[in-house]
């Protein structure tokens, strides 16, 4: 009886890997967010792709400059990332110009380059910004945050200093916040 139960359990467990094979998936390592409506854009991207886009390997997100500086767009992008646990909290965040966004969209392994870039900068961990920090800036109503900037030079992405994003600081610290993240300010 135990062996039958064990066999049944194993049979069920071995089918738990999902119906989609690895060869039917693509694994982008970077996410480019030029507009606030990231969900719609990703749906269009999936519809145009012959493979299933699996975001489990994304190392970095590039925010277009316009989207980053617009609180409403930034809030929408962060809400999308927060609602999808496939995007890890320790994922790197950069603001990028149009040239770098274009480079990233053409190269699926671009995120690995950005990861090395962030890891090996002389400033160390202080020079990196993780998604978690940007979400903390939003939820805790911090007045400003400095995000690493990337600029395109001679066909490559180069660090371009930092850009400061700001919002109105929260008036109260212990205000209960609903579970769904508020977008924008």
């Amino acid at each position: 009886m135990k062996k039958i139960i064990a066999a049944l359990a194993l049979a069920l467990a071995l089918t738990g890997c999902g119906r989609r094979e690895l060869e039917d998936r693509s694994f982008p390592t970077v996410l480019v967010a030029r507009t606030g409506d990231l969900g719609a854009r990703e749906e269009e991207r999936q519809a145009a792709s012959s493979k299933y886009i699996d975001y489990g390997q994304v190392k970095a997100v590039l925010l277009g400059r316009e989207a980053a500086e617009d609180p409403a767009s930034l809030g929408e992008i962060l809400a999308y990332l927060e609602e999808h646990p496939v995007f890890a909290g320790n994922m790197l965040v950069f603001v990028a110009d149009e040239g770098v966004c274009g480079l990233a969209e053409r190269d699926e392994k671009f995120g690995l380059l950005l990861e090395d870039l962030a890891k090996n900068q002389p400033g160390g961990p202080e020079e990196r910004l993780a998604l978690k920090d940007l979400l903390n800036y939003l939820h805790n109503g911090e007045p400003s945050i400095r995000v690493p900037l990337l600029c395109e030079k001679e066909g490559e992405a180069r660090p371009g200093g930092k850009i400061e994003l700001s919002q109105e600081a929260a008036e109260a610290v212990h205000v209960p916040v609903p579970r769904k993240a508020k977008t924008g300010q």
Binding site: E82, L135, V177
Partner: peptide, 23 residues
């Protein structure tokens, strides 16, 4: 410590999100 009180309340499963943010 990782998210602040307001940040923590925004996550449905803060304990797992904590691990996802760890480096």
């Amino acid at each position: 410590n990782a998210f602040g009180e307001a940040g923590m309340r925004a996550f449905p499963w803060p304990v797992i999100t904590l691990m996802s943010s760890a480096e």
